[in-house]
Structure formats: C-alpha cells, structure tokens
Simulated assay, not measured.
Amino acid sequence: MISEFVAQFAKLIATHPEDVRVELTEGNEVTEIVLFANQADIGKLIGKEGKMIGAIKTVISGCKAKDGMSYRINVEAV
C-alpha cells in the first residue's frame, strides 16, 4: 500500500513516469522505501527546500501511527 502510494505520487510529478519504481526493504523496526526515478526528475521529486519529499514523509508518518512501523525514504537516480 505504501509503495503504491509513493509510486503513484512520484509518477504524477515525474516527467519520465515510466522510470519510476519503488522498492521496500523491511527490517525489525524500520522499513526503508527507495524511490528510483530518472535523473532529470530527482529535483522535482525532492522539491524546493524538500517540500515534495516532505509531503510524502508526512503521509507516511500517518501509516506509522497506524501500524507502529517506522519508515525511511530515499530518492535515487535510475
């Protein structure tokens, strides 16, 4: 569910939505979300002063309250 949300959000923003993919690595206490996108879209996904990625983190923090799991998100170029 979280990976689908992050992927859909990123595809709406990205110029190259076909390059967007999300990978989850689940740990005991922290789930790491890696958002892969085209190099040209990295700036758009992070946003000015980190506002776009901050919005994603805000929504994900709601999931933390629901299931007690912590999430970490990273954006990397394809």
Rank of each mutant, 00 (worst) to 15 (best):
M1W: 00
M1V: 07
M1T: 08
I2V: 11
S3V: 08
S3Q: 11
S3Y: 06
S3K: 13
F5M: 09
F5E: 05
F5V: 12
V6Y: 01
F9E: 01
F9W: 09
F9L: 12
F9T: 13
A10P: 04
A10R: 01
K11P: 08
K11L: 10
K11D: 09
L12R: 04
L12P: 00
I13Q: 05
I13S: 01
A14M: 03
T15W: 01
H16M: 02
H16G: 04
H16D: 08
H16F: 04
H16I: 05
H16K: 14
P17S: 03
P17W: 01
E18L: 01
D19P: 06
D19T: 13
V20R: 01
R21Y: 03
R21F: 01
R21P: 11
R21Q: 10
V22N: 04
V22M: 09
V22T: 09
E23F: 05
L24Q: 06
L24H: 02
L24T: 06
E26D: 15
E26I: 11
E26K: 14
G27V: 03
G27A: 04
N28T: 13
E29S: 11
E29Y: 03
V30C: 05
T31E: 05
T31W: 01
T31R: 00
E32M: 07
E32V: 14
I33H: 00
I33S: 00
I33Y: 00
I33V: 13
V34F: 02
F36R: 10
F36T: 03
A37T: 10
A37M: 08
A37E: 04
A37Q: 03
A37S: 11
N38G: 02
N38D: 14
Q39I: 13
D41S: 00
I42E: 13
I42P: 10
G43Q: 11
G43N: 12
K44H: 03
L45R: 00
L45K: 02
L45W: 02
I46T: 05
G47C: 10
K48W: 02
K48V: 03
K48D: 00
G50H: 02
G50T: 01
G50A: 00
K51M: 11
K51S: 07
M52Y: 13
I53L: 09
I53Y: 09
G54C: 03
G54E: 05
A55V: 11
A55S: 11
A55H: 05
A55T: 12
I56V: 13
K57S: 07
T58D: 06
V59R: 08
V59M: 13
I60D: 10
S61M: 04
S61V: 03
S61D: 10
G62H: 07
G62F: 08
C63V: 15
C63L: 15
C63H: 14
C63E: 15
C63W: 15
K64E: 15
K64D: 06
K64N: 14
A65D: 07
A65S: 14
K66C: 04
K66L: 09
K66F: 15
D67E: 11
D67S: 13
D67L: 13
D67M: 11
G68N: 12
M69P: 09
M69H: 14
M69W: 07
S70G: 12
S70Y: 09
S70N: 15
S70M: 12
R72G: 12
I73C: 11
I73F: 08
N74A: 12
N74M: 08
V75M: 05
A77M: 07
A77T: 11
V78W: 06
V78L: 10
